[in-house]
Amino acid sequence: MRPYRSLARMAWSTVLVYRGEFLLQLAGVAVQTVALFAVWRALFAAEPGGEMAGLSWEQMKAYLFIAFLTGTLLSSFTDGQIAVRVLDGSVALDLVRPIDYQLARFAESVGYLVGELFVVAVMGSVLLVAFGGMPLPDPAQAGVFLLSLAAMVPLKFALVYLVGLACFWTGNFHGLSLSRVAITNILSGALVPIALYPGWLQTICAWSPFSGIVSTPALIFLGQVRGAESMYLIGTQLLWVAVLWIGARLLWRVAVRRLVVHGG
């Protein structure tokens, strides 16, 4: 495990060196969240005392904060760092190192996670103060939420990692990244709670791994699901982690057979 701990520390050092780029990328997520807060506040203001998707305005603020949290963790900085190794040929050097490539990239993502959590704490506090705070779960529910959030990290990493591996075939990253973010925002419920979708789209979300990124931790945080239902949703998150991680390993075996090194 020592090599992976070293990679995590090196990733954190990279964040400190390129902190301007890192903060700018995360600021983009924050700006999007501020816009969502403003839009939803206007919608709720049009119906005083009303609810949407079974959520009051106070609960919606908490939902949007969780969407901001999960959107910030494993951000586009992580996304880019995985893809660039394929595009610039650095992956060729990784092939001769006595470490697991997938675990190495996950260790680096954990290193970036430290900086992302700091940004969430700072930007999130400012955001909540500006919009009047949010309700918090009871201690037991908070513990279940943290468990769901922990399961979300390898789940989101697996999706990001798969997109990075797709660069072996596309030779380009930005289009893939934008597509992944767009699909994730829709199917995870990051922009609109899944309960407001038409039935057919709710079914797609329920059968996809994306709902485990935002909707599951948000509903647990709000206490909309409890007990056995919470454990079922967390179990679904972990099941998708296993499926995607195994799928990524199989894709890696195919991808390295067509390695093309760009640059010189």
Rank of each mutant, 00 (worst) to 15 (best):
S208Y: 02
V84F: 07
S230N: 06
M1R: 08
Q237L: 05
A248N: 14
G199M: 07
F106Y: 13
L147Y: 12
A190Q: 10
E116A: 02
W240T: 04
R97C: 03
M10W: 14
L43F: 07
L196K: 05
A142G: 14
Y63K: 15
L23V: 09
S177V: 00
G263H: 13
V181S: 08
A151N: 01
G133I: 01
S56N: 15
G164A: 05
F145K: 12
I183F: 01
I246T: 15
A35K: 02
V17A: 14
G212R: 00
Y101L: 13
L162M: 07
G28Y: 01
G189P: 08
L149Y: 13
V34N: 07
N172F: 13
A182N: 10
I194C: 08
L117K: 09
M152S: 03
C205I: 01
R180M: 00
T216H: 12
L136R: 00
G28S: 02
G189N: 09
A195N: 10
Q224I: 03
L73Q: 04
M10A: 08
W207V: 11
A228N: 10
L128S: 06
P135L: 15
L43K: 08
L201I: 06
I66K: 03
V96F: 08
L113F: 07
I213L: 11
V39G: 01
G133N: 02
A182K: 11
F65I: 01
F65T: 06
A166S: 12
A218R: 07
W252C: 15
R105C: 00
Q81T: 13
F37R: 10
L73M: 10
V225G: 11
I220E: 01
S125W: 10
R41Q: 10
V160E: 03
V129G: 08
G115N: 06
I183K: 04
A182F: 07
E229N: 13
M231R: 05
R41K: 09
S211N: 13
L155C: 00
M134G: 02
A38L: 11
A228T: 09
R226K: 09
V241D: 06
S6W: 09
M52P: 03
V241R: 10
I82L: 15
H174S: 07
A150G: 00
